[in-house]
Design a protein around this nucleic acid. Sequence first.
RNA 1: GGAGAGGUUCCCGAGCGGUCAAAGGGGGCAGACUGUAAAUCUGUUGGCUUAGCCUUCGAAGGUCCGAAUCCUUCUCUCUCCA
Length: 416
Amino acid sequence: MNSALKVLQDRGFIKDCTDFDGLSDLMDNEKVTFYVGVDPTGPSLHIGHIVPFFAMHHLQKEGHKPIALVGGGTGLIGDPSGKTEMRKILSVEQIQSNAEAIKKQLGKIVDFSDSPAPGCGKAKMLNNADWLVDLNYIQFLRDIGRYFSVNRMLTFEGTKQRLERGLSFIEFNYQLLQSYDFYMLNKNEGCRMQMGGADQWGNIVAGIDLINRMDGPQCYGLTFNLIMRSDGKKMGKSEKGAVFLSPELYSPYDFYQYWRNVNDADVVKFMKIFTFMSLEEIAEYEDPARNINEAKERLAFEQTRIIHGEEEAEKARDAAKHLFQAGAPASKEGIPSAEIPSADIDAGIGVLTLFTRSGLCASNGDARRLVTQGGAEVNGKRIEDPKAVIGRDDLDSDGELLLKAGKKRYMRVVVK
RNA sequence: GGAGAGGUUCCCGAGCGGUCAAAGGGGGCAGACUGUAAAUCUGUUGGCUUAGCCUUCGAAGGUCCGAAUCCUUCUCUCUCCA
């Protein structure tokens, strides 16, 4: 098997390929241009989105040429694959700004610079709005639509499920547009391979068929396993909602914590997929004698470093050590913080208000429950009276408060 | 276009005109146990100035001392027929 392909195989990415041998031969003979698409449906990617881009990273290192396709055009429609509900329709401006944000985030995983490291393939980022938005409907039907069989589309598993719940016509067209993307990328960029999540299989195959019918070269499709956590939940969802890459939506500290708290059984699997660590190095962590918590720390650090940078990763790691390991050096910088006006502290502030305002609790009722159930701490002291008042005397030596809700949620309160 | 079914709290889902802030489950949160894991057990789960008050059962009106429950109109979804 081709060496680049083998890397993906060994790291546990690959679910299926339209033609393993054909693709492997092609990759042996030339540096292949390939693409992965994302729809800019939100202001930030979350970790469920990024698996194919890690795969892209590995192929780029082997010299193949990645194209990240931002779906500025398809995003206007919404992909029904794997969804049980219809997507909300987003405004054009919204899609634009989302697309910009996503471009920046992808740059952390794949090198889109003009001069990538020696041996690495040059990567491009394109937006399908460039060719989709101005499509002429009649022309499109004549040229592209004629090659699609509705009968066949109806047999796809994803479509079947949606038929039971309702599928609007525009969504039904998604497959044609995605196929057209592949066709255009093939024609304009010489793209020969498309990768994506397992839910993209139908769309990818349809694109390959289209290219064949339009007399293009043989193209290939590669899909990745849907990464599940060992508890059966989908990756990327946490109690705080989706684990976003954007620091505004999900602080680097919380991001680090998400990885720090993965199940034992997932650690090695995630290292292979979500970090750039070498397989030899990862293998060391598979040793059952090795402390599992060390492995989790490493996973969390590596992943945080890729997404948020070395400095943030260190801050998050040190803050976590400070909070969870007795005797660790004080390092509060990475702990999420909130501010409180100094006048409020002088006047004394109720614990409930304090916890609610810091963002640790959703409402006073929530805070009351927390306190009553013994889960609230201020500077290491458990507060059991919901009527307790925190004043200037309660500040620590730095003039700050450290709130703790439950076992793991911390907030640093700075008096301003 | 016609006929029928239905929209209940984060989700699924129960709900005789008063005893409904609304059963049950899931999820979440907290406590215990632990390793910042999993599993398990217990408690909790609309808001507030919390023995009380306020706002929720698709939307707006109406009947009634009293409505998630009855009536009218509107709206959305689903199923069947055309």
